[in-house]
């Protein structure tokens, strides 16, 4: 059942799995990622959250976002789906409308078509029929697992936005020694070393050089830019600080 060449890379995206007061879609995505990566962090480093269009005609519960991750695994598509769908069905809220999309990154596929769909889903109402038509045309697995199955739209859109590489926030926050006590002072190089981010990016999109001092406090979170995990910072009275949630919400 395993690929002869070893590990292959996949994108997995889920949407519409939660309800008020239930486990979040991001947490379910992380759990699926953990199972698929056999607990090895190098095989799946992070989950991205992608904001989709908010409109009265779209039946999201509260925010309309999709969660996506890349995983390297020796498992074949059928095995991946067996694990992921089983977990999705176990953990999704009874009133939810979950969908899952799975993309083999080695397979021939029109990535731009997926990106276009993802970008469109951020500014217009898309339909299940459109999502399924795209999945079918590109031989991508897309399936629904309860309720109206509306989550297939976000699942498909999330694949495209992750492929595009310039959308979304990284799920979760960084734990740094000393952060709970208040503030941590690090250079950019030290922050990269301790968090594992690819770079430190200003709120105007410029990367900071390694020696630049930072003051980190509160929730330290990252965004996805140029296919990289970026710690977002802003300057206040000459000091570079990690971005506030009010700033992160625009990503």
């Amino acid at each position: 059942m395993e690929r002869q060449q070893g590990l292959a890379s996949w994108l997995v995206c889920i949407d519409d799995t939660d309800d008020i007061g239930t486990k979040g879609t991001g947490e379910i995505a992380e759990e699926i990622a953990f199972k698929l990566s056999a607990g090895q962090p190098s095989r799946c480093a992070f989950v991205t959250r992608h904001q989709l269009f908010v409109h009265p005609d779209i039946p999201y519960t509260s925010h309309n976002s999709a969660m996506c991750f890349q995983v390297r695994t020796p498992l074949c598509q059928a095995q991946i789906l067996e694990i992921a769908v089983k977990h999705l069905q176990q953990e999704c809220a009874p009133a939810s409308d979950p969908g899952i999309a799975l993309l083999d990154l080695q397979a021939a596929c029109d990535h731009q078509a997926l990106i276009d769909f993802g970008l469109a889903a951020k500014k217009e109402v898309k339909t299940k029929a459109e999502a399924y038509a795209l999945a079918h045309s590109q031989s991508i697995h897309l399936s629904e697992h309860g309720g109206t199955g509306q989550g297939v739209i976000g699942a498909m859109a999330g694949l495209g936005l992750r492929l595009q590489g310039n959308d979304g926030r990284i799920k979760g926050q960084f734990k740094l020694p000393g952060l709970e006590a208040g503030m941590v002072e690090l250079s950019v190089a030290e922050a990269i070393e301790q968090t594992g981010v690819d770079c430190v990016l200003t709120d105007s999109g410029e990367p900071l050089c390694f020696k630049t001092p930072l003051q980190l406090s509160g929730k330290v979170k990252a965004v996805y830019r140029e296919h990289q995990v970026c710690l977002l910072v802003y300057q206040q009275e000459g000091v570079w600080r990690n971005a506030l949630k009010q700033q992160l919400k625009h990503y």
Binding site: I20, G21, T25, G26, S62, K219, K245, Q246, L248
Partner: peptide, 12 residues
Amino acid sequence: FIADDEDEQVDD
């Protein structure tokens, strides 16, 4: 008031 999932919060 019920706090949403931390990743869905936008106010510090």
